Amino acid sequence: MTVFHRNETKEALPERLRGGVVAIGNFDGVHRGHQSVLARALELAAARQKPALVLTFEPHPRTVFKPQTPVFRLTPAPLKARLLEALGFQSVIEYPFTPDFSQRSAQDFITSILMEWIGVSEVVTGFDFHFGRGREGGPAFLMSAGARNGFGVTLVDAFRDENTEVISSSRIRTLLSEGAVAEAAGQLGYRYTVEAEVIHGQQLGRTLGYPTANMSLPGEVTLRPGIYAVRFRLENGAIHDGVASFGYRPTVIDNGAPLLETYLFDFSGDLYGQVCSVSFFGHLRDELKFDGLEPLVAQIRKDEEEARALLSGVRPLGVLDEKIAS
């Protein structure tokens, strides 16, 4: 799959991608609600033998408008692209969202991006998609522009879960902040996953017999601190079950920066410098402060047993979960 980064040189879109069916949206999380929009785009593209594309925006618009409070990204751009590839899209177009871009008119978006640059044949998006300066462009504007300019527009209603509640990225962020990773997986359609470079830590785990792969996550990640049953994917694709601690290590250091520390079961080797991913299957407990290292090690043993038991019975939730977390 091609990830095409729009830039100021106005580089032409490759001819093989022009005239496609384009799903438009931020798609942070690529959750089940997003997947209903994406699935419709894939269906139309297959039926018409057109390329299936996704037009999305980087960085997240909320981060641009409120840089002092950047949004907790469920799927940073590289992970989002892999999820979209797994669904079957030929290309992801990552358009830079800047203050200047936010001031462009809705008509300019239609003319310069959708028509002249992409040559779109069909736009598929959510029923509440708005675009252009002051969100002046909405569903009616888009459909009218399509009728005038010869491209189709398909609007997809909000997707509701089994309890008839609308699935949204904000709802999933709330679940993760509560440590409810199993419930979040039900909304996402796959296990919540993070990826980062493995960095050097204090190497205390090694001295305790539990060496960990350490990752520093963005400060805006609001996952609940605690201990989790996880699966760890190496850069080469190999997967190991494990138990991970996310938080501030109260027994070892006070007021440290939050860190994700994963102990991989049945693994030995050097992971430093590799960009790896961690998928969360269950919240085992909150962080605790122990009176010394001996009770800490005893608890780690219990956490390992519980994580092994939980992970032994899991099955993929679907195609995305199989690609990302299994």
Rank of each mutant, 00 (worst) to 15 (best):
H5D: 15
R6Q: 15
A12I: 13
L13M: 15
E15P: 10
G19I: 06
G19A: 13
G20I: 00
V21P: 02
V21G: 00
V21E: 02
V22T: 09
G25E: 01
N26P: 00
F27C: 05
E43F: 08
L53R: 05
P59D: 12
P61Q: 07
F65C: 03
K66M: 12
Q68Y: 05
P70Y: 09
T75W: 02
T75D: 03
P76Q: 10
P78S: 03
L83S: 02
E85C: 02
G88A: 06
G88R: 05
G88T: 02
F89R: 01
S91P: 03
I93E: 06
E94A: 10
D100V: 10
S102R: 00
R104A: 07
R104D: 05
A106E: 11
Q107N: 12
I113D: 11
G119T: 00
V120Y: 05
S121Y: 01
G126H: 02
G132Q: 11
G134N: 12
E136T: 11
A140N: 12
M143W: 12
R148E: 09
G150H: 07
V153E: 01
A158P: 04
D161E: 14
I167N: 00
T174I: 00
A182C: 13
E183F: 07
R191G: 04
R191K: 04
Y192D: 01
V194S: 05
A196L: 09
G201V: 03
Q202A: 15
G205N: 04
L208P: 04
G209Q: 09
E220W: 11
V221I: 14
R224H: 09
R231V: 03
E235W: 00
G237W: 02
G242N: 03
A244C: 06
A244G: 05
F246S: 08
G247S: 08
T251N: 06
I253V: 11
N255H: 14
E261V: 15
Y263W: 11
L264Y: 01
F265T: 04
S268Y: 07
D270C: 06
D270Y: 06
S279H: 00
H283Y: 13
L284F: 01
R285I: 05
K289Q: 12
F290I: 04
L293Y: 07
A298E: 14
E304Q: 13
E306Y: 02
A309E: 15
P316S: 07
L317G: 01
V319L: 08
L320W: 07
L320A: 09
E322R: 10
